[in-house]
């Protein structure tokens, strides 16, 4: 039932956009319907998990349980990071859920600074849940709203396919430096989620590209594998090592893989004939 609804929504999106001209690949627009329907399910599942995880996380914050809240911070964010290209379509929510101190003029003291990183600042920098209650409530309300909007959203194909590259651009521009989770240093959790989210999109359209350009598919998969292998070195029992454990060499390996994936995946839309 749910799948059927999603499918028709995606068909509408495709019909609404002018039928894309083919770039170099012979991909019929209808070929994209199934991958996009599958991606909608992936996004919905992550949005729902985000709501559930955020509930447990914000409950811990509100209960004043610093240790528990800290331990949940990295994993709670992963569902958001994995679907960031879609979540970012709602810029108001993206700002209140995931903005960083330097997005605001008065940095940590700015009243507009809310969401995950504001709570992260309290937990990890001040080692306290003091005054975090209202931020916890706001975050919970925002992710709930996000989930609702995603349910109603018709996914634009070019945003979905383009999302694979967008995730890599995010990592390349602001995450490889370790500045995203600057108080908790849980950046590797974000990395993992960003890469998984990008790879999901790639894997969904992979059969369509493979027919035309198998070398491309091999190269991209190889770089995703390289990232997985590198990140696996930092896996712990319940997540990932802190970012400062990342060696200079491995950071360069990740940076090069991200840059290469960003370059290659930037051609994915064109390969599928999308504008």
């Amino acid at each position: 039932m749910k799948l059927k609804l999603v499918l028709s929504a995606s068909l509408l999106a495709l019909a609404a956009a002018a039928l894309p001209r083919m770039a170099n690949a012979e991909v019929a627009p209808l070929d994209l319907v199934q991958p996009i329907a599958d991606y909608k399910i992936y996004v919905s599942e992550h949005a729902e998990k985000l709501v559930a995880d955020t509930k447990v996380f914000t409950d811990a914050v509100k209960a004043g349980d610093v240790d528990k809240a800290k331990s949940l911070f990295g994993s709670t964010r992963m569902s958001y990071e994995a679907i960031e290209p879609i979540a970012e379509l709602f810029s108001d929510l993206d700002g209140s859920i995931d903005s960083r101190a330097d997005d605001h003029e008065k940095a940590e003291k700015d009243p507009e600074f809310t969401g995950f990183h504001r709570i992260e600042y309290g937990l990890f920098s001040e080692n306290s849940t003091k005054d975090l209650g209202p931020f916890a409530d706001k975050l919970m309300a925002d992710v709930t709203e996000l989930n609702k909007r995603i349910t109603d959203l018709t996914l634009p194909p070019e945003k979905v396919v383009g999302g694979a590259a967008v995730l890599m651009e995010e990592v390349a521009a602001t995450k490889i430096s370790g500045e995203e989770d600057r108080y908790s240093h849980t950046d590797l959790w974000d990395f993992k989620a960003n890469f998984d989210g990008s790879r999901k999109i790639f894997d969904l359209v992979r059969p369509l590209v493979e027919k035309e350009d198998s070398a491309f598919v091999t190269k991209v998969s190889g770089n995703f594998d390289k990232v997985d292998t590198t990140l696996a070195k930092y896996k712990t029992a319940d997540g990932y090592e802190l970012y400062d454990k990342l060696t200079e060499d491995d950071r360069a390996v990740l940076a090069a893989a991200v840059n290469t994936l960003a370059e290659d995946l930037s051609t994915l839309r064109g390969k599928l004939g999308l504008n």
């Binding site: 090069a256 893989a257 960003a262």
Partner: peptide, 10 residues
């Protein structure tokens, strides 16, 4: 140069 050698140089 950056665009043409992303996988070999950072």
């Amino acid at each position: 140069v950056l665009k043409n050698l992303p996988d070999l140089m950072v």
